[in-house]
Design a protein around this nucleic acid. Sequence first.
DNA 1: CAAAATATGTCAGTACTGTTGACATATTTT
DNA 2: AAAATATGTCAACAGTACTGACATATTTTG
Lengths: 170, 170
Amino acid sequence: MPDRKNTSETPIRTAVANEDGIDFVLIELFFFAYRDFTSDPDQMLAHYGFGRAHHRVLHFVNRGPGLTVAELLDVLKITKQSLARVLKQLIDAGHIVQLQGPRDRRQRELYPTAKGRALALALARPQSRRIHAALQDTGAEGRAFIEGFLKAMVNPELRAQIDALPKAQE
Amino acid sequence: MPDRKNTSETPIRTAVANEDGIDFVLIELFFFAYRDFTSDPDQMLAHYGFGRAHHRVLHFVNRGPGLTVAELLDVLKITKQSLARVLKQLIDAGHIVQLQGPRDRRQRELYPTAKGRALALALARPQSRRIHAALQDTGAEGRAFIEGFLKAMVNPELRAQIDALPKAQE
DNA sequence: CAAAATATGTCAGTACTGTTGACATATTTT
DNA sequence: AAAATATGTCAACAGTACTGACATATTTTG
């Protein structure tokens, strides 16, 4: 195997760290944390022939039953063509049902079935367990910081959407 | 458009919240936060014809110059076939160079070029800015909690890898 | 009422990132 | 000399996203 280039591209041998005050530690931690956060449901979904996109749809339909297709697209920030396949599979598998909108009959309201509710809970369980364990490691008084931090990481325009979802006390 | 099924799949009309003590709030916040966290570099990468996978390779090669291919695969947890395309493109574009390993000549040590270093920094900058702003919103004393929480979210077996990366004080 | 706008669905093509399986080459270890 | 290792490469496939175009039903507007 020959060396791929000899166009005198000089290799840099020093590790980048803290340059321009860039927070590489948190950047990496966020990557690793999210990867492992999604790994448990990913494994479960594989048994159903579903992927991460199915999980997200199932999650938000369970969190806000009666959601219209347009509202779901707005939350997920994907195109309707992307949603279509995933949603169709969830409907065909009996996890989600569509009802014609009562006010506007063009709309399709999305509801979970008992099966869809059960799957959503099963997928959320290991994620919640992981979060709970991490909070205990950190100290329970850290929760407010963590919630505040994550919310502050979200684009300001979108925070309204988050507040529109059901809260813990409901 | 007919209703897709009439197999008497009963819709559930109540939102799921706090069931089985599941922490839906943090699950969702983590999803939204990560999505927006990756959106800035994603946009920049599109200009180069690169994707998120290129970003990750570039990041870790910059964080640990001299990394071998096997070490990189171990960090990213992908197959070598997945890495191959992405790595080849980065090498061809002059962001990364490969040097034959000094001890073991089968190995290929990966180093960033000046161009690769510059791109890595440019991609990290908006992410770090977002993190910095979020920390300020939260209060600076929350940083330890957030770092601890994110690290605790990572699978224990993999935390050693994280500790092996350069720290801020180096 | 007719026309325009809206909500949804669908077809076709493409890109990126990941997978598995198989096999080749160079090098090191046994 | 044989086996193991590090890397590279070819082929096929899957999941999730994208764009563009067009169809249908329904509501809103002029």
